[in-house]
Design a protein around this nucleic acid. Structure first.
Lengths: 132, 132, 132, 132
DNA sequence: GTGGTCTAGACCACA
DNA sequence: GTGGTCTAGACCACC
């Protein structure tokens, strides 16, 4: 698995990792039961501190996407939908609001933004993460 | 001009101000050459620290939307784009990718997510950031 | 608010903090909207590293009991039931299994353990945390 | 003797072995003076690392439940209590407090929680740790 | 080798 | 003042 970290991004590194792995799981690139790269290995690969990776992984565990066995590693869970219906909606809305903020702040029209969302959505589902 | 600050929002207060003013300018509510409310007045109105308003104004100046003349106040300047097209696109995509990861990970279908994006977008434009 | 940290405990410090605060919230000792002690202050009080407190607080945020506003502090949320029904059950069972493991390992009879659980439950609800 | 190891369990493998054997001794399934399965045999049976079994046995020896005679194996020793009464109580209470925090925070009523505790307790005793 | 916890300390963003 | 991120490095538990 290859994750690209964008240094100049506004998003913190650990968030970028969470996002990236969430996508690889969501698209099935990382299948249920598979192990994630070890904390130290990924940290070395990305040339960042292991704690930063650990923080990202901890968030994935919290959200139920990933489980951990001490001494063995992190595994993609089969369990899903940890959150209640309203909570899922709340979180989706939060993400969307953040997107809208970005879009409006940069003068994209709603149509431009929506088109791009649709486009990337299809790409994500069709061509799971074009990296390997 | 009236700006409503949402305390519980995830967006920092100064950011909310920046966005709100950006939109009042975009919609023409605040025309080129007009003056913004003074820092102290707006701070009093919103019951927040003047430093926070000052910071928001500084960001508007920085982005080129607003100019300041010492002792006279802040003025709407002629609009110009700050980010290059590719830079804008890159930043937008970043936000979108994050949204998609969230949505798929929480088992929302693309249609559900897109509909919600459209919905919130319209809401945001109809009722721009609680300012009116 | 007073939290006692037990050095010799098998539970990690940050877990003890989570538990303690969870209880003060659950019993209403810390009411909705109230602010938690600041990270640095609590760290100083407990003579531990601020990061450890921050980790505990982060877990409370994740579980929806607490919200944060950067620069202002941590607040008790009114939102509840972040988790789905099955997830709540799963988490409850996990806690119970852990308890049962302890109890059996130390040769408590089920009746002894159950009585004690009942007793402490009543105490918790009746006499919110006998500390202030 | 048959011990089932649950890979996905939160409890470490060696701990599961310790608990399982402790219970076979408590129930008399393994009588005083009897020998435990050899480290290598049990490891092979459970398809785990012999070190893990060795560690479990070491803990049993440490707790006084089991003795070892070099070259001959591990034997069940006469039972004695390891922890003082107050120490046992303190540890149990710790686990219970944690459970109560969880339960109340997730809006379970004491009755719901207690019923579940009782239920899982009975299940645990009827089917002691998947060994039989 | 793996992850888990904790410390110390830096630097930034926010109010 | 507050929290948020990241680093460096220690020590432990587990496999």
């Amino acid at each position: 698995m290859r994750i690209r970290i964008v240094a100049g991004s506004s998003a913190p590194i650990y968030k970028q990792i969470v996002d990236a792995i969430r996508r690889t799981i969501a698209t099935g690139e990382l299948a249920v039961g598979e192990t994630l790269p070890s904390v130290r290995q990924l940290a070395k690969e990305l040339v960042i501190n292991p704690n930063t990776v650990a923080k990202a992984y901890a968030e994935l565990v919290q959200s139920g996407l990933v489980e951990t066995q001490a001494g063995r590693g992190f595994f993609v869970t089969k369990r899903r939908c940890v959150y209640s219906k309203t909570e899922r909606m709340r979180r989706l809305d939060e993400s969307i609001q953040s997107l809208i903020g970005q879009a409006i702040a940069m003068d994209f029209t709603p149509d431009e933004a929506l088109d791009r969302v649709r486009e990337l959505f299809e790409k994500a589902l069709r061509n799971p993460s074009h990296s390997n």
